[in-house]
Structure formats: C-alpha cells, structure tokens
Amino acid sequence: MHPIRKKRLTIVLFLLAGLSIAVALTTYALRQNINLFYDPSQITAGEAPLDVRIRAGGMVEEGSVKRDSESLKVEFLVTDFNASVPVEYVGILPDLFAEGQGIVAMGKLNSEGRFVADQILAKHDENYMPPEVADALEKASLTGEQSMPGSAQPATN
C-alpha cells in the first residue's frame, strides 16, 4: 500500500477506535444514569418505577413540612394541586426551600409510596420556577377542574 494511504488509514482507524470507545462508554453510562422526571399525579397513579433513581417535582404543600427535632430528617408533601406525594429527606435544605415554593427532588420511590430524596433542588431566585414544575402544574390545572381556594396560582416564570 502507498505509504501516504497507509498513514491515512492509520489515522482513520485511530479516530474510529477513539470514537467507538467513546460511543460505547457513553451509551453504557447513559443507560445507567438517565433520571426521568415524574409529577405527583403520575406518581400517585403508579406510573413511576419503584427503587429507581428518578426526579419528582411540584410545590411544597402549605403546612406540610415536619421536622424531626433530634436529627436532620424532614418530611413534606409535594403537590401539583391534583395529587400529593410524601417526601422524606435527611440533610440540609437549600436556602430557597419554603412552603408554597416549587422544588425538584432527586431520589427513589419506595414500596409505601414515599419518595426518599437524596437531593433537593430549589429555584435560584424568587422569579424563577423549575420548568418541570411549571409544566407539571400547568398540566394538572388543565386536567383537574378544581382549583384550591387561596392557593398560589402557578405562575409560569
């Protein structure tokens, strides 16, 4: 084979090898690490898988936050105003966590229907709502006819 062609072939083979390793690693890692988002209605309807790391989000229901006085354990309800899911979390909550605010929780759903979170994300400032939460609330307000009196209307940003 012509030396230049041979060189080109080596280069192409190198590139292909690198790319295929990257693609293989990527697909493998992706399969393991994708976290799907579920809103409270989907979770109460049993659509969310058990014991798989997922994300759940909605508003923290007013008056639902219960703190354990001896540890860092917190329990609260996350709602989309159609359905609520109990969430458990041990650790420090973000500064902007508050009742009536939108949050996203990462964690697993256990067999009792409780969401055991290992991470809680709150919005970064008072004007901003996580897009998933905004969507979930909008969806819920379309499907459910009732609107809770006195509750904050989901403002989309």
Partner: peptide, 11 residues
Amino acid sequence: KISIGEPFFNL
C-alpha cells in the same frame, strides 16, 4: 423530561 447527572460524567 430526563436529566443526566454527575454519575454519567464521572464514569
């Protein structure tokens, strides 16, 4: 809606 978290990138 999915998210890809730290484990994917670390791995």
